[in-house]
Design a protein around this nucleic acid. Structure first.
Lengths: 347, 347
DNA sequence: CTGAAAGCGCTTACAG
DNA sequence: CTGAAAGCGCTTACAG
């Protein structure tokens, strides 16, 4: 019997009920471990369910219960280290609690733009959503409100929602002070973004923190040493090459991300500058390639951020806990010194 | 009325039917663009649906129609370049055809192992699945058969299923011959994996192709120059450092992946060897950081692989086309020469 | 061209 | 502790 069910089609709750000699309601209760079922009955139902290879249809369960056990994870793009790492952490942490990840990569084919969150992406399809460094426009916030979905933001804040992130100002202060403590005074910066992405907070916050830290230490940041970059290694390479080719070079560069730091490292290598003798370089992230590159950096624990965000959302989903802006989790960062920084050469 | 519906709850097909003065069956047909609906009726229904902000409940649609519009994408891990890139490509290509990606990252917390595909991950939850470089054990293939799901494999083949991949043997031949054509004879290799992962084909195929190519050109591959690596940059760095520290050095190294090539590049830099003067290095992939690193490599078009796999699956889902082992799509590869390779120094 | 009704496979009060 | 029945919100023959 079990064999036959197995070979023809997957069985339904009705099959289990018939085979166990009880009603479908009882099967439902027994399988979900609800209270009012006798030990005897439960055992029999479980045994039959196993024999029949029964797994409840998630789609039927969703329709009846109103919950999908699916969480939407929305990213502005996926191919950068931070995003892939955090999606991985979220997926594992949710699956450990029987939830699944429906993935949305909003990166558009047309350069420099992204798709909008839309109702038919989310409506009745997910129980909640986690956003990754995603500044939402008012319409999107509105949509989330109307859909009445629990949301947890990672990285970039969303009004009225919990946030899990590192403290960008602190991280940049750590990077900058690492250089200053080493004795550097001539420090350049890579990672100033164009005005049209001013709505993304992280770049702004890091740059401001760099400037504030320099000021506090009585150092001047020269505008000409604040390099633009779209936060890719390529653009950092380009701009750093220009800066480092000039006669008046900084003794150190802080890059607002490790990927940009890779570009700086490469610029130095191509120009024949020795790191850290001629130039110290520090980044922020602890990218998976940073150890290999010997890059000193400010490490952020991406995995932890994913796990914390997942737990917050699950608390809302499973225990009905309210989510609001008051819940701000800042994950600590720390300097990891490798071989790309040292005291400046006496000149 | 529309306003009220909007502010209180999302509307259902019944709301639209009532408001438009037709039956739910007619709404269903009109909205899905089916034949037998008068232009008048259709127009009215569409208008009302829009006013009410109606979006069909995917979960109800799934239960009634038997299709979820969701595709499972299963990866052994996510945080490496290839996987993140291809997931991104798949997500976009599927979403363009109204399908969504349910993501499974099988990487386990316990090092070196992965989770099994299980019935409750897939059963009634997805219409089909795409596997990424995932060697399946017999039980998993069996499960896929019982579930009767269309499957497309990327990278690593699965018995009885279509495959989208590059030709590993050709790619490695291209890499090796690039070096040979440049005049190299003393060529080392990084990327031999331990025996316990012998079921993953790519590493085996690439190594065999390296050896065959060397042989064909009358060159000997010394066993001592075949370096082990778990395919991370770290382990390549470690083994390359050892090799390059010896007196008897190769003039070139081919790495079976760009990430490993990064480790080799770093080893050379740390040891003060100049690339390409003292050592030529070539990889396979064209990783997003390869251009910045100046790495010569054999490019594979990951995006295209994702798109092709998505289309194959959609043909099966939407047009009922059968999928089987006979469908093998090999995406072409090509050498991209940058600054990490050159003719060997005359010695 | 349109509607009434059954059905998809569950969950959830409500009785008992 | 257990069952009968309604309901979740759609789709799909079947009539007309």
């Amino acid at each position: 019997m079990a064999e036959q069910a197995r070979s023809t089609r997957m069985s339904t709750i009705t099959d289990v009920a018939r085979e166990a000699g009880v009603s479908v309601a009882t099967v439902s209760r027994a399988l979900r471990g609800l209270d009012r079922v006798s030990a005897d009955t439960r055992e029999r139902v479980l045994k039959v369910a196993q024999e029949l290879d029964y797994v409840a249809s998630p789609t039927a369960t969703s329709l009846a219960s109103g919950r999908t056990q699916v969480v939407g994870v929305v990213a502005p793009f996926l191919t950068r280290w931070f995003f892939a790492s955090i999606v991985s952490a979220i997926e594992k942490s949710l699956r450990a609690r029987s939830h699944h990840v429906l993935l949305f990569d909003l990166e558009d084919d047309s350069y420099d733009s992204r798709l909008s969150l839309s109702q038919n992406m989310l409506w009745k399809r997910v129980d909640g959503v986690i956003t990754l460094n995603l500044p939402l426009d008012p319409d999107e916030v509105d949509l989330l409100d109307r859909l009445n979905l629990p949301v947890v933001a990672i990285g970039t804040p969303i009004v009225g929602r919990p946030l899990v992130a590192i403290d960008d100002a602190v991280a940049m202060r750590q990077a900058t002070e690492h250089l200053i403590d080493l004795g550097h005074q001539r420090i350049a910066y890579v990672g100033a973004v164009p005005d049209n992405v001013a709505h993304v907070l992280t770049p702004q916050t890091r740059l401001e923190s760099f400037r504030a830290t320099m000021r506090e230490h009585g150092l001047q940041d020269q505008q000409r040493w604040i390099l633009a970059s779209d936060w890719t290694a390529d653009s950092a390479l380009e701009h750093a090459t220009e800066l480092l080719s000039s006669n008046d070079r900084p003794s150190a560069i802080v890059a607002a991300s490790d990927e940009m730091a890779f570009g700086v490292l490469r610029a130095a290598a191509v120009l024949g500058l020795s790191v850290p003798d001629d130039l110290s370089v520090i980044g922020i992230d602890d990218h998976s390639l940073s150890a290999v590159m010997g890059l000193t950096t400010v490490r952020q624990d991406v995995q932890q951020q994913g796990v914390v965000a997942g737990e917050l959302l699950l608390e809302a989903l499973l225990e009905g806990r309210d989510l609001d802006e008051s819940q701000q989790v800042h994950v600590p960062t720390e300097v990891v010194m490798r071989t790309s920084t040292s005291a400046p050469r006496r000149s």
